[in-house]
Design a protein around this nucleic acid. Structure first.
Lengths: 299, 299
DNA sequence: CACACTTACGATATTCGTAAGGATT
DNA sequence: AATCCTTACGAATATCGTAAGTGTG
């Protein structure tokens, strides 16, 4: 026969007053219930915890030795479950997101603010990395969620699109391309071009599309930071192509943009998560907020 | 609804293989029982510990965070009860005895040897102190048992006589008193006398009896150690009176003894224990062994 | 007699195992 | 088809509360 939590609780309650009557009030249980719980516990452990004299209870030496242990056991028990409750009720915990720099700077700041306001004690980690790193971090569990383009060749990752970005050409004010409402990709080849990091997903898209239209870019240089690209364009060094969301972040005096067409290619952005691992409740909550924020952005 | 030990056990068992079937064999429980235990546990904590996909179970992040806690909880639990079992089964523990020097040196060595042989991991503490100290130590709980004369004016102490000692006169060989088989107390006054510690219960008995018979002793000196008394008697300094048990300890060449009569007073020796405190199982076992040893000594 | 613990007993809740169901490999 | 998890159901066990019993102050 095995002891139970309740029996242990009864033991501790009784120990504190050495009285069933008093313990019975404290833990809201009938006197007989406690009496029997104690007896069962004593049977389980094979010895008396209390010495009884019809009218009075006293701890035996064994009971006295066991009491602090029992108290610790009960405290550990409830503490463990309170911690778990906090985890589930999103009062505490941590969530890590890996996002493309575009999204990390564009969509997420607002989401993070709301999330933190709603769940102040959730530790939030944001990694702004390139698409390949997003996949890696999600796959390895270093991130609960990824915000990126659809991951390639990864069956263990699930992708749900939530946003459709578009590429725009970015030019200095007064540039001839700005005279038209829409620009075709092939027209880009006629101007000096400022590229972005070769490893970025945008850059890979751009290179692929230019290869499709059969026009090589007049590449002046690459910049890693999008803000740098913006300033170089503003300075008249050349033109560039950015996802529209990225452009918003660097929108400043001296530059403007136009949508690119033919091919009229979008850039699906969405949530990457592992098929192997389940999301924490905190991550689920965050995920919903991201989807909502994306819907608002689109609308 | 509260979680139970069993549910926690099921959770840990399943975690280790992420399979109900395997866990079911390991803990000898039917698959449905485990399935339901898990479900109940998850209801209790208000969230999923495993993510299920009809055929496979995976720990959720919360489950993963909780697993080590759950393992620790279970280990602490069983360890605590194993410790308690050891206490009850006398495999481990401690017992302290306060005994008069006479008994500490006379009756107890044999008892302690047997006790230690039978319960090797019980820590045994023996305090050889005077009667007053015996009462004090038992009353204060510093000793589980006392071996002494009946304690005076102490309702919170219980005394059970187990031995009846007798006083004997101790003389050097060739002493005139040794010519008779029995000596009357009043005859002691005729010879130089070596007393024992004034605080000892024997001495107090002796003084009381001599006062009753109306004969003052010709007191040469006091000695605290019984062995010293023996050597002084052997050296012909004087005679003395000791409990018979004490005499046995110092029996040596050059001295002998005779029983004292009129008054034919015995010296009840027995076990002192607290009425307030219960005995530990180890103490109960020791007590029985003492009673047995005393019975053998008497027989 | 009042109080405090124990025992008795019927009701409720939990937990188990067997059997049947559904989904995946 | 085989395997694995889940649901359904009846039985055994545990636990509870009310009520009656017992011994002490």
């Amino acid at each position: 026969m095995n002891p139970s939590i309740r029996q242990l609780g009864a033991f501790v309650a009784v120990s504190q007053s050495c009285s069933l009557a008093e313990a019975s009030e404290r833990i809201h249980l009938s006197q007989p219930a406690i009496s029997i719980a104690l007896r069962k516990l004593e049977e389980s452990v094979g010895g008396a915890l209390f010495s009884r004299s019809t009218r009075q209870l006293t701890l035996t030496p064994e009971g006295e030795a066991f009491l602090p242990v029992a108290i610790r056991l009960l405290n550990d028990w409830s503490e463990a479950f309170e911690d778990l409750d906090e985890l589930f009720s999103k009062k505490r915990g941590k969530v890590a997101v890996a996002a493309l720099p575009t999204l990390a700077a564009g969509l997420l700041p607002g989401v993070i603010a709301t999330f933190h306001a709603r769940h102040p004690r959730i530790n939030f980690a944001l990694h702004d990395v390139l698409a390949e790193q997003v996949s890696l971090m999600v796959r390895e569990g270093r991130a609960d969620l990824g915000l990126s383009v659809p991951p390639l060749g990864a069956e263990d990752l699930a992708f749900e699109p939530v946003l459709e970005d578009r590429y725009v050409v970015v030019c200095p004010l007064g540039h001839p391309l700005l005279e038209r409402p829409r620009i075709a990709w092939r027209q880009l080849a006629d101007f000096p071009f400022i590229g972005i990091n070769r490893l970025s997903s945008s850059r890979q898209d751009i290179d692929r599309i230019m290869a499709e239209v059969g026009q090589p870019l007049d590449m002046i240089c690459d910049a890693s930071q999008i803000a740098t690209v913006g300033r170089m364009v503003a300075a008249g060094v050349g033109i560039s192509v950015l996802p529209k969301f990225s452009f918003r972040q660097i929108a400043t005096h001296g530059i403007d943009h136009r949508p690119l067409v033919s091919p009229n290619v979008g850039r699906p952005l969405g949530i990457v998560q592992s098929r192997r691992r389940a999301l924490s409740t905190a991550a689920v909550a965050l995920r919903e907020m991201i989807v909502d924020a994306a819907r608002e952005t689109t609308a």
